[in-house]
Design a protein around this nucleic acid. Structure first.
Lengths: 191, 191
DNA sequence: GCACCATGTGGCATATTGTCGCAGCCCTCG
DNA sequence: CGAGGGCTGCGACAATATGCCACATGGTGC
């Protein structure tokens, strides 16, 4: 039900989060893509130039020094290094501002980080907004992930980011600590 | 209230919210722009064709269905009717999904609705290199999107994927249509 | 006209949150 | 040591939100 094409589809994953990078790469490899992975901007550019992948997954929060722009700054160079590559920007700290910039810079799509691989792949293809399909185009996606699942993933991510600190996570999520506790306690997260 | 035909600065405001429309028009007029105002899609197209304004402010939530599609659907036609016009999308129901769509469709910029006129005007001139004008949300990288915001973004994404079809989206999300409607109608949900 | 579907609303009964408050723990500091 | 201060777990209660049914409208296709 998905890509039957094999080795022809080269894909480059750029993300300094080692764990995420690895997981994503494996998921993509399992789907038959030729995956290359980069953890730094320099590495990314080198690989992009050499492999000229058709698809590039770019994390915005590279090199966690605090400047989240590093990823954005990479879009243009990547496009230059590999004109045929479609770039999909992926970030855990999504914002409309960066989304707009990313697209203006030529990214194919922009996704907030709890994504499932299918959505990511869809973003490369017809995703949405092909030249003039208009928005009326609506191919039924398999299972878009329920809202609850999304919430769960997101919470887990932030929780991990805060070293399991519930209070801090609740604060970051602007949600009441009590509520977070209840969510965490009650939900094994089904689907 | 929209005289001063300085041909150089024609601007078209499209927003079905009468109050907002009026306020914005006055603010623009006071700054010396020749303002035209439209409240419906049809009116907007007519005016765009006739006046061929250099700047177009487009509200996404036209013709108030809960879905914010109508505005998006207008972007392409407007561009066609007035190739030289720069479109800035403005919405009270901002989401990354629609922002991405809008930019892909050729909008110059995308702003969340509590905007001040200066930011709006800046959005027309801003290039990708400009020091980030406007966009009322670009919080420091330490803000990972609140859970509610996440939910909102996810919903918007799926909604767009289904061409704005609320029922289909609700089904895909395994959530009650009524609930979806309420969520859509209610929250501008910032942060 | 008549099914069929999407949508906009209203009205509940029930489930989930938002908030307070309190207690126990583990640290660090004076 | 004792006094903060932060994190956590949990009880209670009111304010919301959600699930669900119903009905009316507006389009479409037969």
């Amino acid at each position: 039900m998905n890509t039957e094409v094999t080795s022809r589809h080269r894909i480059l994953v750029i993300d300094d989060d080692a764990a995420f990078n690895r997981v994503l790469c494996r998921a993509l490899a399992r789907r038959g893509y030729a995956v290359a992975s980069a953890h730094t901007a320099a590495e990314a550019l080198t690989l992009a130039e050499r492999e000229c992948p058709a698809m590039i997954v770019l994390d915005l929060n590279l090199a966690g020094t605090g400047g989240s722009m590093s990823g954005l700054a990479l879009v243009a160079p990547l496009k230059r290094a590999c004109p045929n590559g479609n770039i999909v920007v992926l970030t855990g700290y999504a914002s409309i501002a960066t989304a707009v910039e990313a697209i203006k810079l030529g990214a194919r799509h922009y996704l907030a980080k709890p994504v499932d691989v299918d959505a990511l792949l869809a973003a490369f293809g017809t995703g949405i907004g092909a030249p003039d399909t208009g928005i009326a185009d609506s191919p039924p996606p398999g299972t878009p992930l329920s809202v609850d699942r999304m919430e769960w993933e997101h919470i887990q991510r932030i929780l991990l980011e805060h070293g399991g600190n519930i209070s801090a996570t609740a604060r970051a999520l602007k949600m009441h600590r009590r509520t977070l506790q209840r969510k965490l306690g009650k939900r094994p997260a089904r689907f």
